[in-house]
């Protein structure tokens, strides 16, 4: 089905959604392979209820934005994680993703939809850490 004229381009299932993770949400987990895990708190929607901010890989590619660029937008962050749109949409997460470009990040989007701690925990478990800057 074609998108309506003027509607945002649909976001494919394979598009990766990048989210910065601060050191405060990378917590000790001795049983994990790297000894760390991402807290579910890293996937709490913003208090303004706009959703969970991410950067969309397809727009990043189109505009030449790299993962390094995402990190330089926010010096305090130490990690960059990603989930795919498919993971976000599928059970047990059952959410969706929308484009929401901002002045700072034209690839910005929001993970939207029903929220619960269980969904946040699933997202945190699904998220893969792309890379981490050790805190100084």
């Amino acid at each position: 089905m074609n998108a309506e004229p003027g509607a945002p381009d649909p976001i494919g299932d394979d598009v990766r959604l990048f989210r910065r993770i601060t050191q405060h949400h990378l917590v000790d987990a001795p049983s994990e392979p790297l000894g760390k895990r991402i807290s579910s708190a890293a996937f709490q929607p913003s208090s303004a209820d706009e959703g969970i901010s991410v950067s969309l890989e397809d727009t990043m590619d189109e505009l030449g934005i790299t993962s390094t660029d995402l990190m330089t937008l926010a010096p305090p962050s130490i990690g960059l994680s990603f989930v795919t749109a498919r993971q976000v949409r599928a059970p047990p997460v059952g959410k969706d993703v929308e484009r929401a470009p901002t002045g700072d990040d034209p690839s910005h989007g929001n993970i939207v939809g029903p929220d619960s701690t269980a969904r946040r925990r699933h997202l945190a478990r699904l998220a893969q850490v792309q890379w981490v800057i050790e805190p100084t």
Binding site: H24, H25, D28, S39, A41, Q44, P45, S47
Partner: peptide, 13 residues
């Protein structure tokens, strides 16, 4: 484990 939340609080895990 204590982490901050974006809505001005903390989460104990």
């Amino acid at each position: 484990i204590i982490v901050p939340t974006v809505a001005g609080g903390i989460q104990m895990e």
